[in-house]
Design a protein around this nucleic acid. Structure first.
Length: 472
DNA sequence: ATGTCC
């Protein structure tokens, strides 16, 4: 059956505009190529008209197509020209790139307010350490890749002296009860059941249904990067009535991790979707948002909350196993997300508060701000500072990138630093060395308007993902 | 951060 180059055939291979179809039919009449070859060529023309701009036979059609494409309505959403100012805490610690990214975020038409925490540094879209309040819209990259990345602290009834006298046992159990490494999960009978796996949100989309199995395998694992599980001593200079903890020193277990592959896949999926729905100028492209009244926005909101619950469940499992393994009882527990979005009231209005590497610090709200593997972390209580959108930093922040740290810091220097601070380390490369981080005390001094310190946690035994190994 | 673009 012979193919014909007619209007119907051109529509079948994707041409839509009558004017272009007319031009092609005119040109087709004056070429000798057989119909099948010609349709093949025209298929390419439709896909890549730019590559035909020098073609002697098809350049005029190609040019008309390129011009038509350029004249198409520009759907890019414009940014606001004169954005509001935003509060910056500890500007002397913050790299210029992070401030530029925050300024761009302030220009979104959905933005109500923003703030930059003293550990801020550049990220994708919103900077890490950035807080952004928006009106009825959620920005997947305003939450970050590791949805529900969080801290959890268990204050135990084990005397500090007992820990000091039995470090070998604590080390053995820290290795036995935790699992680190990108992609890692439990296999077979090692897998841990938890009510979060019965959360019906897993059934609302094909994406989530498909993620449940890996989530089940990774439940109770810690992942890689800057995630850790550590024993340390927490020092309460004063008794805390709310926690019910008397002044003094306690052995405590502290963890930092998130929602593993589950949250990462959700973040990736909805960021791509947001970018396709919400085209923004290049400098703001990663700040694409989803309207909370849209189906995609509601899906993301539910999926994000599922990832948050899952991350919380992971910490709960790690703490339960760890404390049980050493026979520790629980005196007090504090935990908080630092990569998440919440519906909150700001200056009397309901807003969506994105905290991407920022600790919730509403009035009276407790949170944990870790230092580094040798520097202290702080148990804090928020002051509810509106200018900071009820937030604080989520750590010390890096002063060297991972690549910089690997180049500059030797194994020996890292070992000496650990020894000087009497910290036992399991895993971790020089990219996580204490010297790669800013001075947490300086960072804390930049946010005295945002939080009060309740207690100080000193790391003693730290586990992180191995140096490139997956057999953690 | 993440089996690092379905």
């Amino acid at each position: 059956m012979e193919k014909k180059v007619n209007g119907e055939a051109l529509k079948a291979i994707g041409f839509t505009e009558g004017k272009i179809i007319g031009m092609i039919l005119t040109q087709a009449a004056s070429v000798t190529t057989d119909a099948a070859t010609l349709l093949g060529l025209l298929t390419k023309l439709n896909e890549y008209p730019e590559s035909f701009l020098d073609d002697p036979e098809w350049k005029s059609v190609a040019q008309a197509m390129v011009e038509a494409a350029n004249a198409a309505v520009d759907t890019t959403i414009p940014l606001v020209g004169n954005p509001d100012a935003f509060a910056v805490y500890g500007p002397e610690f913050i790299e210029a790139g992070a401030t530029t990214q925050m300024t761009t975020a302030m220009k979104l038409p959905i933005t109500i307010a923003g703030a930059l925490m003293p550990d801020a540094h550049q990220g994708y879209g919103l900077p890490i350490g950035g807080v952004l309040a928006t009106r009825n819209a959620v920005i997947p990259y305003g939450v970050g890749v590791d949805i529900g990345c969080r801290m959890a602290l268990s204050i135990t009834d084990i005397p500090v002296e007992f820990f000091r006298a039995n470090e070998a046992r604590f080390k053995r159990e820290l290795i036995a009860q935790t699992k680190f490494g990108a992609g890692n999960g439990f296999k077979g009978r090692e897998k841990i059941d938890h009510a979060v796996l019965e959360n019906e949100t897993f059934q609302i989309t094909g994406l989530l249904r498909g993620l449940k199995e890996r989530a089940a395998a990774q439940l109770g694992t810690s992942g890689g990067g800057n995630h850790f599980a550590e024993w340390g001593v927490i020092d309460f200079a004063e008794s805390d009535a709310e926690l019910g903890i008397e002044k003094g020193q306690y052995l405590a277990f502290l963890t930092h991790s998130g929602s593993r592959g589950l949250g990462a896949t959700i973040a990736g999926h909805y960021t791509r979707l947001a970018k396709s729905i919400c085209p923004l100028p290049p400098e703001a492209a990663n700040l694409a948002w989803l309207d909370l009244d849209s189906e995609a926005g509601q899906e993301y909101w539910l999926a994000m909350n599922l990832a948050g619950d899952y991350a919380s469940a992971c910490h709960a499992v790690i703490h339960r196993k760890m404390l049980q393994s050493v026979g520790a009882g629980l005196l007090g527990k504090v935990e908080n997300h630092h990569n998440f979005a919440w519906k909150e009231i700001l200056n009397g209005e309901e807003v969506i508060v994105h905290r991407k590497g920022a600790t919730p610090a509403g009035k009276g709200v407790m949170g944990i701000i870790p230092g580094s593997m040798t520097a202290p972390g702080f148990l804090v209580r928020g002051k509810g500072e509106a200018a900071a959108i009820n937030s604080a930093s989520h750590g010390a922040g890096r002063q060297m990138s991972r690549t910089q740290a690997v180049k500059k810091i030797t194994r020996e220097a890292m070992r000496a630093e650990l020894k000087a601070n009497e910290v036992t380390l399991i895993g971790a490369g020089t990219d996580e060395a204490p010297m790669a981080y800013k001075d947490i005390r300086q960072v804390m001094s930049a946010q005295t308007d945002l939080v009060d310190t309740i207690a100080m946690f000193t790391p003693k035994m730290v586990r992180m993902a191995g140096d490139g190994s997956r057999e953690d």
